[in-house]
Design a protein around this nucleic acid. Structure first.
Lengths: 275, 275
DNA sequence: AAGTGGTCTAGACCACCCC
DNA sequence: GGGTGGTCTAGACCACTTA
């Protein structure tokens, strides 16, 4: 495809990273990998206003000298910054700072967060009222979804999720006991399921989610203290670890007028998998 | 954190990629970059069943020889496959094929798709009934969202979106005329907005979305031929290009019982941006 | 101690953009 | 032609896992 748009007719001046004092603080001592230090350094410069939206930054080979790292390492950092939407590259022209005020930028591309973590980010306290926390045999549907044998025992956790004591959602989560046992001994009115799983070596890496809207039933309306006509935002989630093993499934029914889901879609680039 | 879980007590046998005929088809001629060829090759081997879920693949240094590429290039391919959830690495132990049948795996991590593209994937035909397609001055709110001066003219496109002639959603999209002009001359009852933008050099790279549920108004119910009590799934979307310039905003109101949003959340790894 | 992934380097060539 | 990003290589050292 032909590029129709031209941004500048003349070259923008490149901006060096070292405008204050000696060489920037990239140390080979190894507290953190060099490329992560480079990412943080550039993020800092943008936050500090040394690098402003739309600016062209110094060419790669020059940055390498300034930072004292190799080009391969620098490019690993730049790649990460592109993924975060902080920089963008233009082939024969240079690197440019993305044009959004960094303060308003999103934290992470598309984060899988627990309810507790989301609450913490908002400065609220997440608690739960437990409706059920027990092991039982799985149904055929549950077994298929979690890729276990039908009848395998599941830990079922059903909670009313509260933010600062206001009921927000109904959360029904199922974890196969083939992955973890002893969850029924935990008090989940304050504990976080994510943390419990993490402490047992189970780390969710991603989750597929389906979202739909429907009316609340009488039961649901009662538990969430809703007007019966209020719609629910229903999110059905299946979480996997890095090996794509299903870890747990959860259905979260949010009160339609008390919650808003946020997500970010990314346009796929290059090498889409072979079907 | 300490790793609690141990997967194997004994080493799994490594699996080579070359089980059929001569060396696999990675050619330096350059139709595609070598690392993309490697990605495709490994995806193919998994699809063909040579590599099966849970298997350990040959160590990096061995694969380099088999494929005739350098370790850096191979690792670029492996990194991509990790991002796609196809492989996972374990430090001192090796590379493992993720344990989900590849056929059931998702296409792309989290795709930004147009309605037309989504329809095509489902084998349906997307059409539109145009409610409005005209330029007008922006309101203060619209201007702020799109980062333009208030009063700047916008192209407003309002459509009923149909799949195989069934009304699915109401789509209201606004594009600043500072980015593109002449859109009011296009017949959007069949044309795709994404394609029109792409042909003018505007490529969306990502979009922030907020999703909520609410009841349909009488007007909305009428346009979508809904029972008035059916809830709507409302998605408010703001699309950006690679430089983070806002390209357009769109509000899509789906009939709650005719559509289901799918998305994927990814657990953020390493180097979270500085706040 | 040996095997493996994780990080890093110096140097090369190509493709694209602009003068 | 000169500057710039995109790709690729060979080789090195470190950290983690398993024996």
């Amino acid at each position: 495809m032909k590029e129709v748009h031209t941004y500048f007719t003349k070259w923008a001046d490149a901006v060096a990273l070292t405008h204050d004092g000696a060489r920037p603080t990239i140390r080979a001592d190894y507290p953190e990998p060099l490329w992560i230090q480079a990412v943080n350094l550039i993020n800092d410069q943008i936050a500090r206003g040394v690098l402003r939206p739309g600016m062209r930054i110094a060419p790669e080979r020059e940055l390498c000298q300034q930072l004292g790292i190799s080009r391969v390492t620098l490019r690993k950092a730049l790649t990460k910054l592109v993924a975060d939407g902080v920089l963008s590259a233009s082939h024969g022209r240079g690197w440019y700072v993305a044009s959004t005020a960094p303060a308003r930028r999103n934290e992470w591309p598309n984060t899988l967060e627990s309810f507790s973590e989301t609450a913490a980010h908002m400065g609220l306290t997440a608690t739960s009222s437990i409706l059920r926390a027990a092991e039982a045999a799985s149904t055929v549907d549950e077994a298929e979804e979690l890729q276990i044998a039908p009848g395998t025992r599941l830990f079922r956790l059903e909670r009313v999720r509260l933010l600062d004591d206001v009921p927000i959602a109904l959360d029904a989560t199922r974890v196969p006991t083939t992955l973890v046992t002893g969850l029924d001994a935990v008090d989940f009115s304050h504990a976080s399921l994510y943390e419990e799983l993490a402490s047992r070596g189970l780390e969710p890496a991603r989750a597929d989610a389906k979202v739909e809207a429907r009316q609340a039933t009488d039961d649901e309306a009662g538990l969430l203290a809703l007007d019966k006509r209020t719609p629910l935002l229903v999110m059905r989630q299946l979480a996997f670890d890095a090996q794509n093993r299903p870890l747990f499934s959860s259905t979260i029914r949010y009160a339609g007028d008390r919650y808003r889901l946020k997500t970010q879609f990314v346009r796929s680039t290059a090498a889409g998998p072979t079907r």
